[in-house]
């Protein structure tokens, strides 16, 4: 019978080894992203794939989250006669937390898993070996463009999610809860601060890094066969989603501490 302490030790060592490998991989991607040579065409192509094509799914998620948030705040606020604060809390919640988190989670599924599957398929069909034999580094040609594109487009997507999310809350409040449209929008604009927007955008940049690196890392480590590629996509999505939520909490705590 296996010693339980041995088992715990093995799992712990495996976890630290995984974290180490991921950290080294992320470091190599970052170095490839900040030093020449850059593949401009690839970066643009990835910006369209990661940013532009994600807009519909992010927009849809944001509008429903904004609408549900407004309803729940109204329901809770009415217990204390505070339902007039719906626009303030909706815009605060979306710009500081939900806009970035929803975008991060949707892209963990759409982009991170997609990158892992694509790179995993390239790995098992020897395309990555071919790339290396043609004197092109996979870090520069494949991973850095995805990393740069995600860092650049996530803040734009989060801005879009913030606006659409607030509009979701506005729709429900005006057409379902009887708020005056002008008053609702004025309260929203008056309440939001530059710092609230900045918090969401800083998170967006970090989430962009997590999503792209996790997808590239799992794809790069993909084992042969369809099962290996599927596993890489799943691990990447789950890993990216968990890290997005964990780092969201860490950053929120940090921002509260420093008064941002």
């Amino acid at each position: 019978m296996a010693n339980p302490l041995q088992l715990v030790g093995r799992i712990t060592l495996g976890l630290f080894a995984d974290i180490g490998r991921l950290a080294v991989f992320a470091g190599r991607v970052k170095i490839a992203a900040i030093t020449p040579r850059w593949y401009g065409g690839e970066i643009l192509r990835q910006m369209v794939r990661i940013g532009f094509y994600s807009l519909p799914v992010v927009g849809l998620a944001a509008v429903f989250i904004g609408a549900a948030l407004a309803l729940n705040i109204y329901e809770g606020g009415s217990r204390y006669g505070a339902e007039q604060f719906v626009p303030n809390i909706v815009v605060l919640g979306i710009s500081r937390e939900l806009g970035a988190v929803i975008t991060g989670l949707m892209l963990a599924g759409r982009v991170s898993a997609g990158i892992a599957a694509e790179i995993g398929a390239m790995r098992v069909t020897e395309q990555i070996d071919a790339l290396e034999t043609l004197s092109a580094s996979r870090y520069r040609y494949l991973y850095a463009p995805r990393f740069i594109a995600a860092l650049a487009t996530l803040p734009l997507l989060v801005m879009a999610a913030n606006i659409i999310g607030v509009m979701g809350g506005w729709l429900v409040s005006v057409y379902g809860l009887g708020f005056d449209s002008t008053v609702y929008l004025r309260n929203t604009v008056d309440f939001i601060t530059r710092d609230d927007i900045l918090v969401g955008l800083i998170k967006a940049v970090l989430f962009g890094g997590i999503i792209s690196v996790m997808g590239c890392y799992q794809g790069d480590r993909s084992q042969a066969g369809a099962t290996g590629v599927g596993r890489a996509a799943t691990l990447s999505m789950v890993g990216a989603a968990v890290l997005v939520l964990a780092f969201n909490y860490v950053l929120s705590t940090l921002f509260v501490e420093i008064g941002l």
Binding site: M122, T125, E126, Q127, D129, A130, L131, T133
Partner: peptide
């Protein structure tokens, strides 16, 4: 060095 892969390995 050139290399022809078994699968072709075209991008």
């Amino acid at each position: 060095v050139g290399m022809l892969f078994q699968s072709g390995a075209l991008f």
